[in-house]
Design a protein around this nucleic acid. Structure first.
Lengths: 159, 159
DNA sequence: GCAAACTATATGAAAATACATATAATCATA
DNA sequence: TATGATTATATGTATTTTCATATAGTTTGC
């Protein structure tokens, strides 16, 4: 109601940072996730747990290493997150039958239910985000991000 | 040379996650930053320190709270990062003359030198990233991210 | 079938981060 | 000008995250 509260813009209006690609990516990622992440926490999950759930929703029975890769986290961190999720009854560990080193993670019934619900909410939220953009921007943003990602994967494959 | 090493894609090829906007944003942000962040650490800085330096490069003398906002970090974290940067001689704290609660942060000469060098490197790296994209994607990506950001700021202003 | 190299996961310990709250300065106003 | 509300920063503490490395299973080459 009042305009008193000093409004601090997202970044200094002018200067390097505010139009720096890596800043825009980080800021957009954070800002866009903010509302949905609130929702995730309301459902009693932490963000890393939600990421694991989303991956398992797509493909149940992933290995620790694969989860680390897909969920953009370090292996030892995934191991501990899985520990907690097992305790909470969201997932179970099973040893791979052919390679005893591998541990495959499966959603429990409760985990399935929760992940389905959250994925549904995530899709709805994504639509909301895209509706806030011009049709041009809405059309362009994902392809641009995917192009950036794939150009970087190419580089990573050069080893 | 060999194709033996199992190639793990960035995310399950199919399914929800791999084309989910929030995933693409987080993954693109992480992947795009990766190389440059290596460089930052080679220069002896941690990533949060670099972010602070970049903000101060744009606008020296920012307050703790402003730094937290611009550098996408929590206030108490900024306070401790500044502690370390002061110890390292990269910045100094000065009390604001008109409002004694405020603490303004200024780059030292060493901090200025380092931030200039890193900003130059960041700009060069950004050009490299954009060169890896089609001209369409390169042209579209920043406006799309900025549009997303500003659409979200509008929402945040509704309180 | 054994040793060495490799891969997958787990774990110990240090460091970073978040969350709640303390401290201190300013502001509004009666 | 005292009081309560507000703002800016700092700090205590618990939790999370990282980093290095341990453990255990597998593969390769002899």
């Amino acid at each position: 109601m009042n305009g008193n509260k000093t409004h601090i813009g997202t970044s200094p209006a002018t200067g390097f940072v505010s139009s720096y690609l890596l800043y825009l990516l980080a800021a957009a990622s954070e800002a866009a996730s903010k509302q949905f992440h609130l929702r995730v926490r309301e459902m009693g999950l932490r963000i890393p747990e939600w990421r694991v759930m989303a991956c398992l929703h797509d493909q149940d029975g992933l290995m620790i290493t694969q989860l680390a890769h897909y969920a953009l986290m370090e292996q030892s961190r995934i191991t501990r997150i899985i520990d907690q999720m097992v305790t909470r009854g969201l997932v179970v560990r099973h040893n791979d039958t052919v390679d005893g080193r591998r541990v495959r993670i499966y959603l429990t019934d409760e985990g399935q239910a929760l992940s389905s619900e959250l994925v549904k909410a995530a899709k709805a939220h994504e639509l909301q985000l895209l509706k806030g953009l011009s049709s041009d921007d809405a059309r362009n943003i994902k392809p641009a991000l995917q192009a950036l990602l794939s150009s970087l994967e190419d580089i990573a494959d050069l080893d």
